[in-house]
């Protein structure tokens, strides 16, 4: 699975989930993912409860997520919780703490348990 495929899967899960749409209805953010090994930048955009993904950078990102591409792919495809690489120092997130927690919550509610 490529990083873009993982992000598209993540986006699909978010947008199909009524609870996640409700949680995100007032959350408008641009998130840039920067693989620190391949340097193939991707992005996520959340606007009024709907999330989209794409390749390439995004203007004025609210959050930057840096990690090896394999870890980013694993996190956004649900094979790894964000906590694991975050605690190990393999996942660096720059942004507001609330946004970091929200992204963690979204991934856990999609793939948790």
């Amino acid at each position: 699975m490529t990083l873009l495929e993982a992000l598209e899967k993540f986006v699909s899960e978010c947008n199909q989930n009524e609870r996640l749409r409700a949680m995100n209805r007032d959350w408008t953010r641009r998130i840039q993912l920067e693989p620190d090994d391949t340097h193939r930048t991707h992005h996520l955009v959340s606007e009024a409860g709907i999330v989209s993904a794409g390749s390439g950078p995004v203007d004025n990102p609210d959050m930057l997520i840096q990690a090896p591409e394999a870890i980013l792919t694993a996190v956004f495809s649900g094979q790894m919780t964000p906590t694991e690489p975050y605690n190990a120092g393999d996942l660096l997130v720059k942004g507001h703490q609330d946004d970091i927690m929200r992204l963690d919550i979204l991934s856990l509610l999609i793939w948790g348990e």
Binding site: T81, P82, T83, N87, Q97, M101, D104, I105, L108, L109, G112, E113
Partner: peptide, 15 residues
């Protein structure tokens, strides 16, 4: 709780 807590309990508590 079932979905969030197994991961959250491993975070630094101040978060």
């Amino acid at each position: 709780a079932r979905k969030l807590l197994p991961s959250w309990v491993r975070l630094p508590f101040h978060q």
